[in-house]
């Protein structure tokens, strides 16, 4: 919880946006709506297991865990819009295929409502036995913050889970909580975000900084979390989830190339 109480560094982000313009690594990247500042896109740690699987030309089996903040709800389906929205777990395969043709993944989505870190850690052995996952994408923090689980307990549980996965040689990417000004006014997510970041660094696990990325999109006007018309909501959610899937695919490839 090292950053506990630190102001959301919007001013820092602005400063970073000025001082560290995203270096356009290609003509395509310059105009990409999914772009984020460089410090939100750092891949620190290698993914040895995924590397071995890719090298052996085998698909990487991905298990997605977490709450429904990763998958959305089926409320749009009742309005006839369900089919037009795909949450990021369902987009990773395609994103990876387009980023690195020939490297395949299979994704199993086991997100569910109300999944605290403790519930997930409890289910981990069974889920791993069932899916034989090579890589776990673990969305953590949302339900713990909503239920106001003690942040130290949350951090300890997360740490236990990461150790368990590390012992099995399974790669992990953590995904932190979503951003919207509305939900940020109901909860104080910051301690959970900070703790997750700190545990991830200590345990050598990459983090998809969803909260900061979504905040960046919101501030840039690319994403409107407060959209009220269902069609707008679906379009906004679709944009964010497509970007998250692409970023995850990029992270997996980058991590699997590091040695």
């Amino acid at each position: 919880m090292r950053l506990w109480g630190m102001a959301r560094p919007m001013a820092w982000l602005l400063l970073a946006a000025v001082l560290l313009p995203v270096s356009a690594t290609g003509a395509l990247a310059a105009a990409d709506a999914c772009d984020v500042p460089e410090d939100l896109a750092i891949v620190h740690f290698p993914a040895d297991h995924a590397y071995a699987r890719f090298k052996a030309r085998l698909p990487v089996r991905i298990l997605v865990l977490g709450s429904t903040s990763s998958t959305g709800s089926n409320l749009w389906a009742s309005k006839g819009l369900g089919a037009s929205f795909k949450a990021y777990p369902r987009l990773i395969e395609a994103a990876l295929e387009s980023a690195a043709p020939g490297r395949s993944v299979t994704v199993t989505d086991r997100t569910a409502p109300g999944q605290t870190a403790a519930l997930i850690v409890q289910r981990l052995p069974a889920l791993l036995a069932e899916t034989a996952a090579d890589l776990v994408i673990w969305e953590a923090g949302t339900t713990d913050a909503v239920k106001r689980i003690d942040v130290n307990a949350f951090g300890d549980t997360l740490d236990d889970g990461l150790h368990f996965l590390a012992e099995k040689g399974i790669d992990v990417i953590l995904v932190d909580v979503q951003y919207s000004p509305q939900t940020d006014s109901l909860y104080d997510f910051q301690p959970y975000l900070d703790y997750l970041q700190q545990v991830a660094e200590a345990d050598g696990v990459n983090v998809l900084k969803r909260h900061d990325i979504m905040r960046h999109y919101t501030e840039e006007g690319r994403f409107d979390p407060g959209a009220r018309i269902p069609a707008d909501q679906v379009r906004n959610a679709g944009f964010v989830h497509a970007c998250l899937a692409r970023r995850l695919a990029g992270m997996i490839l980058a991590a699997a190339q590091q040695q």
Partner: peptide, 14 residues
């Protein structure tokens, strides 16, 4: 009442 975005159904669990 005003923020009825299914994307945040988990967060609106409150």
């Amino acid at each position: 009442a005003t923020f009825n975005n299914p994307m945040y159904s988990e967060e609106m669990g409150i």
